[in-house]
Amino acid sequence: MDSLSSILKKVKQLDPIPTVIHKVLDLADNPESSLKDLVAVVERDAAITANLLKTVNSAHIGLPVKVDSIQQAVSMLGLQQVVEMVLAQNLGSNLKRSQKGYGLAKGDLWCQSLTVAMVARTLARQRDLMSLPAIYTAALLKDIGKVILHAFVADQIEAIQQSVARRGMSFVEAEKEVLGMDHATLGGIIAKQWHFSSHMIYMIENHHLPDPAARNDPATATLYLADMVAMMVDTGIGVDRLAYHVHQDVFNDFFPDKQQLKSLMITYKGLQREIQGFFKAD
């Protein structure tokens, strides 16, 4: 079996995060920053500006006029949507690959991550949570550890699945026991190396709520629930689907009426179809 050091060495093989992402997140989270500040940061990067305008003007977005500037894009779509587009366009390169150890084909993890991010944003808005860009970004990157770990999981999948089936472990617990590392902890290590905030690192590390205290952090609980909704809908995708602990108290807190959960699952399917349609049209 490969050692823990072998796993950690592979982190350096990931595509780096553009520095503009940190600037965008800082400005989006700062109530004292102006719209002009954010537009100026994005416009300084020609590649990001070009890709963003291409997306905004795509048939999928369906705007009635051609958009020629970031300022115009923000005025027509709103600041939050433009920020999300910038994040999505610049955080996906690593996640678009196949993760064979997890049974994920090329594009599966990225599509799921985008959909979970949209659901997490929806839940966060319903509960009037702050730091929407941070929650959205953590949702996009929650499974970044799988990009590295999937090859190691493939080598030890029988042992991992036996621990899940025979000992009642969650998939992430079995990963840690068999490999010495689980994808959530590895995701936190990667987020730290990419210089994300301590809270975002915490959300990624704890998106399966292994730390009981995480259940009391609204942002982390939101990310957990969005991820669980994805698992309940996408039961046929990935070897680890539903092999996780269900924290009923968190579900009860967010969804006192079971119809609310059913409605969110329907929302997830709709968002998923929308994203898949965008990929096909691209």
Rank of each mutant, 00 (worst) to 15 (best):
Q161W: 09
Q162Y: 14
Q162E: 15
Q162V: 11
S163V: 12
S163E: 12
S163W: 03
S163K: 14
S163I: 14
S163A: 13
V164K: 02
A165I: 09
A165P: 14
A165K: 09
R166M: 11
R166D: 10
R167I: 07
R167L: 12
R167S: 14
G168A: 03
G168W: 08
G168R: 07
G168L: 12
S170T: 15
S170I: 11
F171C: 09
F171I: 05
V172R: 13
V172M: 05
V172H: 11
E173I: 00
E173F: 02
A174P: 03
A174K: 08
E175L: 01
E175P: 04
K176Q: 00
K176L: 05
K176C: 12
V178W: 05
L179H: 05
L179N: 03
G180S: 06
M181A: 13
D182K: 07
T185Y: 06
L186D: 13
L186M: 14
L186P: 07
L186K: 02
G187N: 11
I189M: 07
I189R: 04
I189E: 15
I189T: 11
I190W: 03
I190S: 04
I190Q: 02
A191V: 10
K192E: 00
K192W: 02
K192T: 14
K192P: 02
K192H: 08
Q193F: 03
Q193A: 11
Q193V: 10
Q193L: 06
Q193P: 02
W194M: 01
H195V: 03
F196D: 07
F196S: 05
S198W: 09
H199K: 12
M200N: 15
Y202N: 15
Y202S: 04
M203G: 11
I204K: 04
I204H: 11
E205Y: 02
E205M: 10
N206G: 10
H207G: 00
H207I: 00
L209S: 01
L209M: 06
L209I: 00
P210Q: 06
P210E: 08
P212V: 04
P212S: 02
P212A: 03
A213N: 12
A214V: 05
A214R: 05
R215C: 10
P218S: 10
P218N: 11
A219V: 07
T220C: 00
T220A: 13
T220P: 01
T220R: 06
T220D: 02
A221Y: 13
T222E: 12
T222F: 03
L223M: 09
L223D: 15
Y224M: 08
Y224T: 12
Y224V: 05
Y224W: 11
L225V: 05
L225D: 01
D227F: 04
M228D: 09
M228E: 13
V229I: 15
A230R: 08
A230K: 04
M231F: 01
M231A: 12
M231E: 15
M232L: 08
M232P: 07
M232A: 09
M232T: 07
V233L: 04
V233N: 03
D234M: 11
T235F: 06
G236P: 04
G236H: 12
G236N: 10
G236R: 09
I237A: 12
I237K: 15
I237W: 03
G238I: 06
V239K: 15
V239R: 10
